[in-house]
């Protein structure tokens, strides 16, 4: 994937996540300069950012720590470089756990 295609795809992903999270959660959600932050009232914070050199999306989670996702063309999804979990699934599960609300990204 070239850098422009990556930027477009990753930006689309981050925007999609932001919209759905804003709708579903009572949390402070912000997308700026390719960095999506989700902050809860208790101070716990998620950071989802584009990492262009590796063509990856990086997740920083207060529950599971750091994980990195590369685009899986067959699955049309961002897949973890360790273990193969899908970014949207990981976020949906964890955010639901923290907030008690049901969240779906599909």
């Amino acid at each position: 994937m070239d850098e422009r295609a990556f930027e477009t795809l990753a930006e689309e992903t981050l925007r999609g996540l932001m919209t759905r999270i804003e709708d579903a959660l009572d949390a402070d959600v912000d997308l700026r300069g390719g960095i999506l932050t989700i902050e809860f009232d208790d101070g716990r914070q998620y950071v989802v950012n584009k990492h262009a050199p590796n063509r990856q999306i990086w997740l920083s989670s207060p529950l599971s720590g750091a994980s990195h996702y590369a685009w899986d063309d067959a699955a049309r999804a961002w897949r973890s470089t360790r273990g193969g979990a899908i970014l949207a699934d990981v976020l949906a599960t964890e955010l639901a756990q923290i907030s008690g609300s049901d969240i779906r990204f599909d």
Partner: peptide, 8 residues
């Protein structure tokens, strides 16, 4: 949070 990737 933005820096935990370094620990990886």
């Amino acid at each position: 949070p933005v820096k935990i990737h370094c620990s990886v």
